[in-house]
Design a protein around this nucleic acid. Structure first.
Length: 270
DNA sequence: ATGCCTGCTAATAGCAGA
């Protein structure tokens, strides 16, 4: 069984590329982030005509998450319990379309688009940290209820956990950029302490191995990327991982997303 | 070559991404 996660940065703008990749990649489950559409404009048929069931959660042109599966798609949940909302400057806080869960082939899959944070001193940063802490609290409870649960927390985590996960850590420090700060890394480590493992890491050793390259400033040709997309596997799921790769080809050419697919291969499970 | 950012709308400018 193959599980993939991909921040597509607009599904409508990239429908042809996503369909082509879906056919070539032969994945059983594909979690998507940044679909950037409401349900009304979601391309349901793209998935259905290729044999995938699909569930989507989109509230506006921002965010949007989906799960496509050809091994079942059950118990769909939109947002996790108590998912924090964001409101700025007195505007009423709203819950954003950043998490959708479904059970696919015995694996509880969560497609996650972690808030960006924007800047270390921005209101979005405490929102990001609280969002992650709340998710981890629930993940911890899920594992406490069933230590053998196969859970995959996948998506765009908007955190580079290690110095080698960005092209120039000194530049990030000097500029005071997000994604590498201690509070963000601590929020990521908390999931590892809960029992989750970065399932792709062992098969995608760095340095210089990334999942995202900014559109600006020739970041891709200059190999200036970031590793911020992850499949975090519960212990029972991690035990099934037999391979992983980042599909770097998908960053090339016309109409590419700025992120590439992360694919994790699992041995047959119970 | 992998190529100087891209996609969205309350669009033709401004916001968001990381």
């Amino acid at each position: 069984m193959k599980i993939a996660t991909w921040n597509v940065n607009s599904l409508r703008a990239r429908a042809d590329r996503v369909e082509g990749w879906l056919l070539r990649s032969d994945v059983d489950v594909l979690a998507l982030q940044e679909t950037k559409c409401r349900d009304e404009s979601f391309p349901w048929e793209l998935f259905e005509r290729n044999g995938y069931e699909v569930a989507h959660f989109g509230l506006s042109q921002w965010n949007g998450v989906a799960i496509a599966s050809r091994v079942g798609l059950d118990d769909v949940e939109r947002t996790f319990p108590d998912q924090p909302s964001f409101g700025k400057g007195g505007v009423a806080a709203e819950q954003e379309a950043r998490a959708i869960g479904a059970t696919c082939g015995g694996v509880r899959v969560w497609s996650l688009y972690v808030p960006n944070g924007r800047a270390l001193d921005d209101e979005h940063m405490p929102y990001k940290l609280e969002w992650l802490a709340t998710l981890n609290k629930h993940a911890s409870e899920w594992l406490a209820q069933d230590p053998a649960a196969q859970i995959a927390l996948v998506g765009d985590w908007n955190i580079a956990p290690r110095d080698e996960d960005v092209w120039d850590i000194e530049l990030f420090r000097t500029e005071g950029w997000t994604h590498v700060s201690e509070p963000e890394r601590e929020a990521f480590r908390a999931f590892e302490e809960t029992g989750f493992t970065d399932a792709a890491r062992a098969y995608t050793a760095g340095p210089g191995v990334y999942t995202y390259w900014d559109y600006k400033q020739l970041r891709f040709p200059k190999k200036e990327g970031m590793r911020i997309d992850f499949v975090l596997a519960s212990p029972a799921l991690e035990a099934r991982v037999v391979g992983a790769h980042f599909d770097r080809e998908e960053r090339k050419g016309k109409g590419a997303s700025d992120h590439v697919p992360v694919v994790v291969e699992l041995a047959d499970g119970q």
